[in-house]
Design a binder for these strands. Structure first.
Length: 437
RNA sequence: GGAGAGAUGGCCGAGUGGUCGAAGGCGCUCCCCUGCUAAGGGAGUAUAGGCGCAAAACGCUUAUCGAGGGUUCGAAUCCCUCUCUCUCCGCCA
């Protein structure tokens, strides 16, 4: 959420910034509502002030044992007028909030301007693209060939966009997550975190998934009944652990000395993938359920741009240790996610697609999420002030597995296991059919 | 699932219809005293808005005592609904 003060005092700046991400701010509607709000809020507060003074007089008179009918006569019709005014004000403020909640974050000045994916700016490349003297197979062909990857059965259980991994492939998948977690905990100073996979409406609102992107989520029922009813808000499966980890500081005032907070968690993620019909239908790239190791930083506003560089570095470390070629891309203004002020994507080389594919996305949300969450810290002067939040994948486990299968494939259909993962695989150095079980 | 008790400011805790945004304490900030240490004295210290001012300082004002609704001229206090926490019992990985 943007600062309402910024909209009031510097609307043109906001409009221009937003247009760079192809978002057109409803200026006229906003101005109209603001004008009404101003008028009605003032009116309401005048009525409230009047009521308060008179009520005090009543109390005073009664304590002296005086007659109060004369005073009470003054407020006889005030109640209705006030109620009406309050209702009106609430309607306007609800509408203003609706507008405000749907407005994405403003891009940072360092973000490349552009209209779409093609305008993203490559920052650096790492690793040599492997060459193969045999016909390259994609991860589906490799995994199914090894009889370790099974989409058909998963479809029977759950439908499209699910998968079953077995044997050493399932183990490799687990090894990857462990390896990532260990690296971030031991080498990068993160707090290992186990957090809920089901979260409430407020949490999703805090990080910006709601109200705008509900169709991307899975909501759950309890005992055959929808959890959500008029009194109890519903639960949703997390689309990313960013939601659980970032909301740890929702409605909190974090002591200055405990900043920065750095959380890491390995969780499943659930996405409905509405609107992506026909995209990446084959394989593990785009699933309704996938595992991710997520990194979250909660920082002092002054250090958030240093933090995003650090965060990207942490994610890159994983790829370097696994010796997977990748590139880092700065997303352009139009390609960034809703809550981000600046985003770097890390894209890993996939030989079968002959292209780099997103494997991590690291964003600085500045105070955008913190303002929604009321996540604050007590600053040097003892005043509360909004935190900055960042999140990034470190990394998407399923896609990392895809990258390993494809980049480490051998002519005989086997797959070499990267050195760093062998300790997690009981020393195993290859996935092959014979040893697959 | 059954029975009961709770939810108040950064923290603890008082407050059952009227100068209560809230006693007292802790913590914190500033000042004074004390030649260290310990202790003592004084003042200040919630948050989010609105309006005014070119702006800051500031002034006026509104809302907020778990959440939402209701009663009332007036609600932390009374009524209803919900959420959460704690204790006991049952069930359970």
């Amino acid at each position: 959420m943007l600062d309402i003060q910024l909209l009031r005092t510097n609307l043109n700046y906001v409009i221009e910034k937003l247009s760079s991400r192809n978002f057109s701010f409803p200026v006229d509607r906003f101005n109209q509502l603001e004008a009404e709000r101003k008028k009605i809020q003032t009116h309401t507060q005048e009525l409230q002030a009047k009521r308060n003074t008179i009520s005090k007089q009543v109390g005073l008179a009664k304590s002296k044992g005086e007659d109060t009918t004369a005073i009470l006569a003054q407020v006889s019709n005030l109640g209705d007028a006030l109620k009406q005014s309050v209702t009106q004000l609430e309607q306007i403020q609800t509408e203003l909030q609706k507008i405000l909640f749907d407005v994405p974050n403003l891009p940072h000045d360092s973000v490349p301007k552009g209209d779409g994916e093609t305008d993203n700016q490559e920052i650096r490349r790492w690793g040599a693209i492997p060459s193969f003297d045999f016909e390259i197979r994609d991860h589906v062909s490799i995994g199914e060939g090894l009889k370790l990857l099974d989409f058909e059965t998963a479809t029977k259980l759950s439908g499209a966009r699910f998968s079953i991994m077995k044997g050493n492939l399932a183990r490799l998948h687990r090894a990857l997550a462990q390896f990532m977690l260990d690296t971030h905990i031991q080498e990068h100073g993160y707090i290992e975190t186990y957090a809920p996979y089901l979260v409430n409406h407020d949490s999703l609102h805090g990080t910006g998934q709601l109200p705008k992107f509900e169709e991307d989520l899975f909501a759950v029922k309890a005992g055959g009944n929808a959890v959500e009813n008029e009194h109890s808000p519903g639960l949703y499966l997390i689309p990313t652990a960013e939601v659980s980890l970032t909301n740890i500081v929702r409605d909190e005032i974090v002591p200055l000395q405990s900043l920065p907070l750095k959380f890491v968690a390995h969780t499943p993620c659930f996405r409905s993938e509405a609107g992506s019909y026909g995209r990446d239908t084959r394989g593990l790239i785009r699933q309704h359920q996938f595992d991710k190791v997520e990194l979250v930083h909660i920082v002092h506003p002054e250090s958030s741009y240093a933090a995003i560089e650090e965060l990207v570095g942490h994610a890159e470390t994983i790829l370097q240790k696994l010796e997977l070629p990748y590139r880092v891309v700065a997303l352009c203004t139009a390609d960034m996610g809703f809550s981000a002020a600046k985003t770097y994507d890390i894209e890993v080389w996939l030989p079968a697609q002959k292209t780099y594919r997103e494997i991590s996305s690291c964003s600085n949300c500045e105070s955008f999420q913190a303002r929604r969450m009321q996540a604050r810290f007590r600053n040097e002067n003892g005043k509360t002030s909004l935190l900055h939040t960042l999140n990034g994948s470190g990394l998407a486990v399923g896609r990392t597995l895809v990258a390993i299968l494809e980049n480490y494939q051998n002519a005989d259909g086997s797959v070499t296991i990267p050195e760093m993962l062998r300790p997690y695989m009981n020393g195993l150095d290859q996935l092959c059919t014979a040893g697959g079980q």
